[in-house]
Design a protein around this nucleic acid. Structure first.
Lengths: 335, 335
DNA sequence: TTGAAAGCGATACCAT
DNA sequence: ATGGTATCGCTTTCAA
């Protein structure tokens, strides 16, 4: 592999000049620039990104931490980030945090040790304090799906409360009055916010929430099934179920079917996230769209703008969810 | 951030010695080693991985190219790779190739320019020749889901032909004799191999394949729907359908349902891949398991063994698919 | 076992 | 506009 030195020799100029044309910002005469370009071409020169990093103290890489690499959710996010970053010539290093505190910290350490220029984090287990301290260090971070007031500018988040509200509102407008709610793990802020949205919609319609119709799951489909069993076992009537995410909705739907309930005739269900699977399950799931791909993209733009000085970019911190109507929820049968 | 130089000063030894204890291979006296370790500890020293890379000509990073970051398939694969790599302290740089030749080449170039030590590639559009040439260069590569005889050792692949055979065999054993086949794009080797497996099973049962019952899709669910329409439109009877992948099976199932066909009573369907969605769709899809996570893991091990000298690792190049029985295929109704 | 010193391939400051 | 050169933080001979 040719080095900058060989290029400079062939072009008959100095190292410094070659470097200048590479970073084509400095003032180089049209003439020398062409000589250098020609030499590069001839040698098939490719700059050594590692040497560049060492000298410039910039790795041009951004670290990403997600909970899991598999699953229906993070792929969209990574996709958005990678797209944006690669277009800017930055590369993306990934690690998984598995929703566990130790593992998340470990992943962050790992990314830091790889000298990333910035980190995009989708963390769940780590505390606000930890993140605040981290953000006050030298490593720039941006948080996806998490809002910390002190770090507001670094957060790209969804208005989960609004989403919860919208989901419930839809059912209410379809005439349902007896609603069950299947929550995510309440220690996760998104689960809590979605639940609060539900309560707000209920209150707005003058409905009081019956705690017996609340079940708390863990966002997995298996817990959706388990929660549905519990709910059904109580023998309390409800014509609609709002689930804090699509996976639990899928699990719930399965159990409902096993109990001879038709969806949506006997039971309307609405989910949250609008995962791919929402279109695959039967009946197709009415849900709340979570624009996670867009949000990943935005996180990448944040980095591009704040770390790599691409000033022109427009940023947006909070995204609004929207309702996606499909087949799993319908107006309550008259009478 | 402390440098190796500061550590050496504090420990009262030379640079070289510190370096030796870091790469704990060289012979360093227990005594000095402890002094150095203590100094590192005290300074909170973290080696600069970029400087290490430049000096050692090793980036400790492996590049991954997948077709898409989203979607139900690649996540599993990335997950397997990341796991294995991180445990070994190597990091993973990712890029997407979008199943287009130019984009795949571009991604590979990008990864190379990032000085990866090796590349793990899941490519579809690029030619065998290109890959052979690439493999003969200085960049070690391993191919997932692609078999090229000249590069056999670098290939981690699935016996797709066997998978196609197994899928069809199952239907045949359940008594079906009129089978339709929905193929993937035949220019992709996996699509072709799966189809050949189908033909072999048919032949083995003395059944001749009716070309009118073949439809070629593009592995997406929308094409599954479209192909199903075509098949139905011909008016030829068939009691079972084998699909070259799960997504098309999902699309086909939807159309079947819209035509008033019950699955599996009126029509048995089997898929291929065993994506998560196979468990979510209704009825649950009988399919062929594609251990893509394991294969990703294996690709990572290949790199660890061949590039990073972890000699102990056991490698395996070809994986055998297995049938997963669920609810979408059943014995043909008597009479 | 330990140290000295020459790179690795760029960047960036200081001259000219 | 261009060149000279110190520098980034570490690895790796070669000597001692």
């Amino acid at each position: 592999m040719a080095t900058i030195y060989q290029v400079s020799e062939l072009a008959g100029v100095s190292l410094a000049t070659v470097s200048r044309v590479m970073n084509n910002n400095a003032r180089v005469s049209e003439n020398t620039r062409n000589k250098v370009l020609a030499a590069m071409e001839q040698l098939g020169y490719r700059p050594n990104s590692i040497a560049q990093s060492l000298a410039s103290n910039r790795s041009n890489s951004v670290g990403i931490l997600v909970s899991e690499l598999h699953g229906p959710f993070y792929g969209e996010m990574l996709s958005g980030i990678e797209n944006e970053c690669r277009a800017a010539g930055k590369h993306v290093i990934i690690a998984a945090g598995h929703s566990e505190e130790a593992s998340e910290k470990d992943g962050i350490e790992f990314l830091i040790s790889r000298s990333c220029d910035a980190l995009i984090l989708h963390v769940e287990a780590v505390s606000d304090e930890y993140l605040i301290k981290l953000a006050n260090g030298n490593m720039p971070i941006v948080l996806i799906n998490r809002f910390i007031p002190q770090l507001a500018d670094n957060c790209i988040s969804l208005d989960n409360e609004l989403g919860g509200y919208l989901a419930t509102k839809q059912l209410l407008q379809q005439g349902h009055t007896q609603l069950a709610y299947m929550a995510g793990p309440m220690w996760k802020s998104d689960a809590k916010d979605r639940y609060h949205g539900h309560l707000r919609a209920m209150a707005e319609h003058g409905l009081s929430f019956n705690p017996a119709l609340l079940a708390e799951g863990d966002f997995q489909d298996s817990s959706g099934s388990a929660c549905m069993q519990q709910l059904l076992a109580k023998g309390l009537p409800f014509s609609a179920l709002v689930c804090a995410n699509d996976e639990m909705a899928a699990g719930a739907m399965e159990v409902a079917r096993a109990h001879g309930l038709n969806v949506p005739q006997d039971l309307s269900i609405v989910g949250f996230d609008n995962l791919i699977l929402a279109r695959y399950i039967y009946p197709k799931l009415t849900t709340i769209d979570y624009p996670i791909g867009e949000m990943g993209r935005m996180a990448a733009r944040w980095v591009l703008k704040n770390i790599y000085q691409q000033q022109a970019l427009q940023l947006k911190n909070i995204f609004q969810p929207v309702l996606v109507c499909r087949d799993s929820a319908s107006a309550i049968a008259a009478g």
